[in-house]
């Protein structure tokens, strides 16, 4: 039996993942979908239904803007582009993620005894900062 990422875990990061794709160039729905699969090394698929909902939300928050491509065959594509605000949002989310990942690693994997040092370091740091 394989392992999966629970939807609860990924939900808060959908926007950041999309911004990461668009950071690397303008793209449209189905291509973004494929790029996310490729980014995960074929280990994760973000459903298109989730993507379209996120596009609408990100556009309302002015993190992305959309424009129509000029394909003549087989329908126009709706492309998305990252805005400056989206870029900032992505940078902030990345920072938050790196911080959260470290803390979560400790919270989930470490044992209190073996990690006494890490905990002490953390406390000392807190005191020194004051």
């Amino acid at each position: 039996m394989g392992t999966t990422i629970s939807t609860d875990l990924i939900r808060g990061h959908t926007d950041t993942i999309i911004l990461n794709v668009l950071r690397q160039g303008d793209s449209y729905g189905y291509e973004i979908y494929k790029k996310i699969i490729a980014l995960s090394g074929n280990q994760y698929e973000l459903k298109e239904a989730t993507l379209y909902t996120a596009f609408r939300r990100l556009e309302q928050e002015e993190c992305i803007v959309s424009y129509w491509g000029d394909e003549t065959q087989g329908g126009r594509r709706k492309y998305y582009r990252l805005t400056d605000k989206g870029q900032e949002f992505y940078a902030q989310n990345t920072k938050d993620w790196i911080f959260a990942k470290e803390v979560l690693d400790k919270l989930i994997l470490n044992e209190l005894n073996s990690d006494k040092l890490a905990l002490e370091n953390l406390l000392e740091g807190g005191i020194n900062n004051e």
């Binding site: 449209y28 729905g29 189905y30 979908y33 298109e48 087989g74 329908g75 126009r76 594509r77 709706k78």
Partner: peptide
């Protein structure tokens, strides 16, 4: 239109 284009592709 967006859905139709992507679904077709």
């Amino acid at each position: 239109e967006e859905l139709a284009t992507n679904l077709k592709e």
